[in-house]
């Protein structure tokens, strides 16, 4: 085991800001991007099922 305890782990040998700053942004973007892509797909599906202008009765 490299770390004596959890606070040792989070301290990252004094480089906590740099290591966690890099990982936090990576995690945030890689969570947000799939959610945005799924939302785009869901909205495209909803739009496809809405009656278009020609289908509507006058």
């Amino acid at each position: 085991m490299i770390w004596a305890n959890w606070s040792d782990f989070f301290a990252m040998g004094g480089y906590a800001l740099y290591v966690w700053g890099a990982y936090a942004v990576c995690l945030a973007l890689m969570l947000a991007e799939p959610l945005l892509a799924r939302r785009q797909r869901r909205q495209a599906l909803l739009a496809a099922h809405q009656p278009s202008m020609e289908d509507r009765q006058p």
């Binding site: 892509a37 799924r38 785009q40 797909r41 495209a44 739009a47 496809a48 278009s52």
Partner: peptide
């Protein structure tokens, strides 16, 4: 997933 969304947008009719 994004390609699916784009395909749906283009092929909606």
């Amino acid at each position: 997933t994004r390609a699916q969304a784009l395909a749906l947008e283009r092929e909606r009719d």
